[in-house]
């Protein structure tokens, strides 16, 4: 699918183009910097320590979900159930925390169970798409309906509170540093480790050309299932952040996040067709969405116009990202 960009690479390429090719998230980074400057211009306090902490607290879940989506898109697939997995893990975690008491150990046990749930959902998606060879868009839509049903079964209505210890920790500070910063560091280390794994490389190879990957001996089906499994695990991590942020269980909390996660991946310069992209770009993409939303608020847009301006800004950013990215690569 990326054939068009492959042939006839001229010998003399400008250094700029080489840089863009090496770091496909550069256009996104530029957009992000502009947005940060504008945010600071219109509301200096938004760039204060407290302001940044708040933004990270709110958008950490979307960053994680965008990363989740990236691994699937690497292989040229897509996961429309990512948001439903977030909802399911959210109610599972909150449900078990409430049932088991809510002290430190039971919280960890519930989180472990949440990770297992995410992994299981990812495996289901992988098997349905890669092993049963159904079309990813419609098949993961079907599984999203199933996961949402499961979440509604576990907790029919929103509102079960998460234990105080859990959300206090997420929103609080350790050694005077907000807890979310530790999460960000841990997340960064995890991503660095994952970039170096064989699975990431294989996902990209499969996305670049499934047939070729198969012919060079890659277990294509297993690799694609692996991508979905990784997506499920990261969706579970995103659910933990949502739970920490909202401090309650809601069987529909993640539904709206799916399309934003896909937008974030595209904003980050990854190709939807697969075989090309970075997780860093997706994190930047999620931050772009976050900063657009806060900027629209800070410039004083009337409340009923905010959604429209956000929608337009995201559409323009998506188009700009695709165009600049292609121009730089061509």
């Amino acid at each position: 699918m990326t054939m068009a960009s492959a042939p006839a690479r001229p010998q003399s390429r400008s250094a700029l183009k080489r840089t863009f090719e090496r770091y496909p998230f550069l256009p996104a980074l530029i957009i992000l910097v502009v947005l940060i400057v504008l945010n600071g211009w219109f509301q200096p306090r938004s760039l204060s320590f407290v302001g940044i902490t708040g933004l990270i607290k709110t958008y950490l879940a979307l960053m994680l979900l965008a990363v989740a989506q990236t691994y699937v898109i690497y292989a040229g697939d897509i996961d429309l159930s990512a948001g439903a997995i977030v909802s399911l893990v959210n109610v599972v975690v909150v449900g078990f925390m409430a049932q088991w008491g809510g002290d430190g150990l039971t919280i960890l046990a519930a989180l472990g169970l949440g990770l297992a749930t995410g992994l299981a959902c990812g495996l289901v998606n992988g098997i349905v798409v890669a092993a049963l060879r159904l079309q990813a868009i419609v098949a993961t839509f079907a599984t999203s309906i199933f996961f949402t049903g499961l979440a509604l079964y576990i907790q029919p209505v929103a509102g079960t509170p998460a234990p105080t210890l859990f959300w206090r920790t997420y929103g609080g500070r350790i050694l005077d540093i907000p807890f979310v910063f530790y999460v960000v560091v841990a997340f960064a280390i995890l991503l660095v480790v994952l970039v170096r794994t064989r699975l990431t490389l294989r996902l990209l190879a499969v996305g670049d050309g499934q047939q070729e990957a198969f012919q060079s001996g890659l277990p294509v089906t297993a690799v694609r299932i692996g991508g979905y499994a990784l997506c499920g695990v990261f969706a579970a991590l995103a659910a933990f952040c949502i739970t920490g942020d909202t401090a309650s269980g809601d069987p529909l909390v993640g539904g709206k996040m799916t399309l934003f996660s896909i937008a974030a991946v595209v904003l980050g310069g990854s190709a939807l067709a697969g075989g090309y992209g970075t997780v860093v770009g997706s994190v930047i993409g999620a931050l772009i969405i976050g900063f657009i939303n806060s900027l629209v608020f800070f410039v004083g847009t009337p409340s009923e116009w905010q959604n429209l301006v956000q929608g337009l800004a995201i559409l323009l950013a998506l188009m700009a990202g695709v165009l600049v990215g292609r121009g730089a690569r061509a």
Partner: peptide, 27 residues
């Protein structure tokens, strides 16, 4: 003309339309 992938283009347009709905409806 701009060669944006259809999924991306129409996804972005969906966001614009949803925003437009809020403006027209005014709650």
């Amino acid at each position: 003309l701009l060669r944006i992938p259809p999924l991306v283009m129409t996804l972005g347009m969906l966001g614009v339309l949803q925003g437009l709905l809020v403006v027209i409806r005014q709650g």
